[in-house]
Structure formats: structure tokens, C-alpha cells
Design a protein around this nucleic acid. Structure first.
Lengths: 253, 253
DNA sequence: CGCTACCTTGATTTCGGTCAAGATACGTGG
DNA sequence: CCACGTATCTTGACCGAAATCAAGGTAGCG
């Protein structure tokens, strides 16, 4: 009982974060919403949350750890679609067709919450604020997907990676964690795949940013040294930054 | 009165298409939903439907013509986000922040329907099928955005363009128009921008597809000659198609 | 301690971008 | 209806960012 209470408390925070429940819900309503959220067992690194082809029945939210989603085309190439951190929801793309087209996998040991969709839909019809929240949440995914679309269509490798870091930075900050010092839970090649570049290119970009003393990357620990210049990199305003690197060839006169 | 009726009829079709209202709505419910949809004046080519920064208050659906949305970055570069054909809804990305981040412009003379969002939200709370339909519609945007993400991150210019044509083809087919003979309402450079390639590259890809007798492009009229091979192009299974072109240089022995 | 998976670095290639020059279509006014 | 000017599209030549190929290096794990 007592530990159930504890679960409930921690997961209430989870539901509040994951669903970003607006403050306008009454306590009763929060309890109702919270009650529909199933607590799932921990999911080990590289274990699936759901798989392409699975019937869609729930949305998921990361409670701790990190999840990536990816799709596989006819030739068997994997494309990383997204990364999800604690407090973030995933699986919304499957509402449309009623089955999952992507696979979701834990990139590290992870806890997820499961939110049965038919119950959520039902409650959304009863709790006006929940409904309008769901609309906003879905819309938010659309608008961030659109930003990504611009990133993938127009930006250089360096801009993509810088934007990626800034995006993570913002998401960590929302969780009241340091925006300049954090861990990358995913591998370089997952990042590369997500950004539509080669892993080798990620390496090279990272090296350049380190030489420029914009950031420090020790293993998977990121330390952003100069947020301002990272923003510049993200927006392609560093085309002549190599002035600073020219002294690498001082003997060429 | 009579012409109002006519409007209502034509626009009922519009709302049914645009919102893809499920058959499960009763006639009364359809009338209610239809009543909330405002008929807008025609919008001339190159006139805006809404602009970046505008307050969000309505979703829009194309009744006739075509609309494109685009965003503009700090440097003033435009990025085409999407094209919308008759029966398709746009503006859903703005629900999240309450204001439009993109600009919507008519690429040809166009009629749009305006759907006041707060009324739509209200009705969704009352009509269960409308709500679940809205969830599906938003989810559908997310899942097609994800496909586009893969396209932009991983595919070659030819694959992008072939996929683009196939996508249009499917959308025309949904409207019961020919899937192999249709018009491109937008310019080559808009297509190029949308696909994240240069307009010159679109030209070259089109030429290659014409030489291969996969399609015929006369001005803006597309004629798909070989749907099967276009699908192959879209999936990158044509890496050695130039065997067929080698006879162009028969003198090289 | 050695194996495997991941990451980094360098050399080479290539796809597509950019630049530049025509060609074609289009709308406007004479 | 035609001539002209402007937009857009096509084509070619060249170039560059990043992919690919190919070794090494590192780190985590049994």
C-alpha cells in the first residue's frame, strides 16, 4: 500500500510531465488521469517497447532512461525517427493507422509509463482540458517535426549537429537539469542516422567544435563551453571560423 | 437561400473530405460540423492565407486550388514545409503555440474553408467521433512527417523526386482523379525547396526519368508512363539503370 | 586479458550544389 | 495579334561537402 502510494506519487509527476497536464485540471481530475496510467516494468537497454507491425493500443512516456524510435525500409535500412527523454511521450504516430509503423527501443535501461489509448480518448471527451491538452501535444509534435524537416532539407552537417545539441540542451533544461552539462544516452551512429549524416561526419564535426573550444565531449558527456558560438554554428554563421585554425599551418607562411 | 443551400452542399462535401469525417457521424452531427465551417472568399495566386506571427484561431482546408506553407529563418531563407491539395487540411502545427510559425500562400487561385478552432474543440468534446477523428487526423500528419523525415535524411535526389510524384499520385487518386496523369500546381523551385535539393537537380532528375521513359513532363502536366519503375526509382533500386542509356555512346565500343 | 563494438582519422570518390549561359513560357501593353 | 521583358526552366562546366572506403584506436565486457 505504502509503496503503491509512492509509485502513484512518482507517476503522478510522470503523468503531469509526460502529458504536460495543464494546471487547470482539478485535483480530482488529476487523480483520474493518473489512475489510467499503467506503470511498466523497467526495460533493459536494447529491449523493445513496441515493434513495427504491433497493434497500437497505448501511448508511452519515458519515466527514466531514454528511448529511440526507428523505421526499417524494404532494403532493411534503419532510420532513426526520434529520441525520447524522461517526461516525453512517444507512439503518437500510430493513432492514425491503429498500428505501430516504427519500432521503439530502449537505448539505456529505461522505465516507461503506458497510457491506454482508448481510456485516454474516453477521458478526453469528459475532461475538456485534457482534450485540448492532447490536441496541443499532438500539434507540438507536428511543429517540431517541421523544424526537423528544415534541418534535414537545408542544413550542413555542422548545423545539424549543433542544432541537435541545442535541442537536447533545451529539453534537459525543461527538466531543470543543466543545459550545458549533460550525457548523450545514444550512440554516435544513432545520432548520425537521426541527422541524416555519416557517423564519420559526426566525429569530424565534434572535433572541429572541440578545436574551436565550443564544446567538450568526453565519451558521452557533453560540456557546452560556449553556448553563444554553438548557436552561431547551429545557424550557419561560422563559415569563416577557420581563421582560428589557420595557425595550425604556421610554417606555410 | 437556395444558393446558401448549394454552398452548404458543396461545403458539406468539403468538410467531409477536409476533416475526413468518419461515416459514423449521424446526419445531424454532420450538419452541426458543417455549420461551423466558414466559407472563405477565393484566394488569388500568391496571396497569403495566414502569415508567420499571426494569431492562430482557425484550421484551414483547401476546397479548390493548392496551398503551400513555408517558414523563413533568420537569414531570410524560405523553406517549403508542405503542399495542400483540395480536401486537405493545414495549419495544425499552430495549435501548440497559439500562433502561426509558418506562412501559407496560394500557389494558384484557390478556395479555402476556415474552421474556427475553438468551436471545433468544443464540438469535439460533444461528438465523440469528431474527437477521435481529430486525434487520427493529427496523428496522420505526424506519421507522414516522419516518412518525409526519412526521405530528407537518407534519400538521393532521384528517390526524393520519385517519392514526391508517387505521393501526389496517391493524393490525386484519393480524390478519384487519375493517378498517372495530373498537374503539378507548384513551381519546380518550390518542389526543389521542399525536397531539399536545387532546382537544377530537379531538372536533371526529370530529364533522366524522361529518357528512361518512366514519365513525361510537359510544362506542369505529369504523365507517369511506368508506375512500376517509378516505384523502383523511389526506392533506390535503379542504381544500374544506365545500362539502358549506355547505347547513347555506342561509338565508344 | 582478449574480444567485440564503437569511435576516430585519413584518403579518395561522388553526388549534388553553385555559377553561368541559353531556352522557353508568360503576361502586358502597344 | 504580336513584340517585348520578365519569370522560370534547362543545360553544361566546375567545385565542394560529405559519403565511402580503409585502417587504427579505445573502451566496455565476459
Amino acid at each position: 500500500m505504502k509503496e503503491q502510494k509512492n509509485y502513484a506519487v512518482s507517476c503522478q509527476a510522470c503523468s503531469l510531465n509526460a502529458l504536460c497536464i495543464p494546471y487547470s485540471l482539478t485535483d480530482d481530475e488529476i487523480d483520474i488521469v493518473d489512475a489510467l496510467i499503467k506503470r511498466k516494468k523497467p526495460i533493459q537497454r536494447n529491449k523493445l517497447v513496441f515493434e513495427s507491425g504491433d497493434k497500437f493500443s497505448s501511448l508511452y512516456a519515458v519515466r527514466a532512461g531514454a528511448v529511440k524510435t526507428y523505421s526499417v525500409d524494404q532494403e532493411g535500412n534503419e532510420s532513426v525517427i526520434g529520441f525520447y527523454l524522461p517526461g516525453e511521450m512517444f507512439g503518437m504516430d500510430a493513432i492514425y493507422s491503429g498500428k505501430h509503423l516504427n519500432t521503439a527501443i530502449a537505448v539505456e535501461n529505461t522505465y516507461v509509463c503506458e497510457i491506454p489509448y482508448n481510456r485516454l480518448e474516453e477521458l478526453s471527451g469528459q475532461i475538456k482540458n485534457l482534450q485540448s491538452h492532447m490536441f496541443r501535444a499532438l500539434s507540438g509534435v507536428i511543429s517540431s517535426d517541421q523544424q526537423l524537416q528544415v534541418l534535414l532539407g537545408k542544413k550542413t552537417a555542422e548545423e545539424r549537429f549543433a542544432n541537435f545539441l541545442l535541442n537536447l540542451s533545451n529539453r534537459y533544461q525543461k527538466r531543470r537539469l543543466s543545459p550545458i552539462l549533460f550525457r548523450l544516452p545514444m550512440s554516435r551512429s544513432d545520432i548520425a542516422n537521426y541527422l541524416g549524416i555519416a557517423p564519420e561526419t559526426v566525429s569530424r564535426v565534434v572535433r572541429r567544435l572541440q578545436v574551436s573550444e565550443i564544446l567538450l565531449l568526453d565519451g558521452n558527456d557533453v560540456h557546452i563551453l560556449d553556448l553563444h558560438r554553438l548557436c552561431q554554428s547551429a545557424h550557419g554563421r561560422n563559415k569563416n571560423r577557420d581563421e582560428q585554425n589557420n595557425h595550425k599551418y604556421p610554417l606555410l607562411k
